[in-house]
């Protein structure tokens, strides 16, 4: 009798613990989802950089995964964005230094006309490929809000760092050093 009673009591505590645990877990999960809901599509350092394929001004296709093994300096920009224009020459100079060390620069323009992008590239005499994201799908995939935003992709294809806002030439040099293959 008392053995049976003990068992019953034990079962009751287990039952109650399981029910309580499940419900608290559900609330915890909801809270977690709620906290991360707003930036659910925001990329984080360490995430796999979403692959994409865009065409540059020469008509050549660039696919991010083709650059595996190299560091990719992914710069999102527009001609109307002044800090973007300011950092371009520095990026170009640093690209000249790092391109032989396995660092690629891809400048992704946000859905502007070829004329504007071409004039800009000519004006600044850019030597790295400039691609145009015509449907804004890469911008959506990377959840880019302010311009400029620079996403640094390491040789493993993972995001090493996300920089929003203007960079100095020193910054750019340091970032390229970070994603340079060993």
């Amino acid at each position: 009798m008392s053995e049976k009673k003990k068992n019953k009591k034990k079962n009751r505590v287990i039952m109650r613990s399981v029910i309580l645990f499940l419900m608290i877990a559900a609330i915890g999960y909801t809270l977690y989802n709620n906290a991360t809901a707003e930036d659910v599509s925001v990329l984080k350092v360490g995430d796999e950089a979403p692959d994409f394929k865009l065409v540059d001004l020469e008509g050549e296709s660039h696919q991010l995964s083709d650059y595996k093994g190299q560091g990719v300096f992914l710069n999102f920009w527009g001609t109307w964005c002044k800090p973007c224009a300011k950092e371009m020459p520095a990026m170009d100079r640093q690209f000249e230094v790092f391109k032989d060390q396995g660092v690629q620069v891809l400048a992704v323009n946000i859905a502007q006309s070829e004329f504007e992008v071409q004039s800009f590239a000519d004006q600044y005499d850019l030597s790295f490929p400039v691609v145009i994201d015509k449907t804004k799908s890469v911008m959506t995939a990377y959840n880019i809000i302010p311009l400029p935003t620079t996403v640094l992709v390491n040789p493993e294809g993972k995001i090493e760092r996300i920089v929003t806002g203007e960079m100095t030439e020193q910054d750019i040099e340091g970032f390229m050093e970070e994603i340079k293959p060993e």
Binding site: D51, K53, V131, T135, V138, A141
Partner: peptide, 8 residues
Amino acid sequence: ENSLPGAT
């Protein structure tokens, strides 16, 4: 299917 962002 499996198309990449940007590819049109």
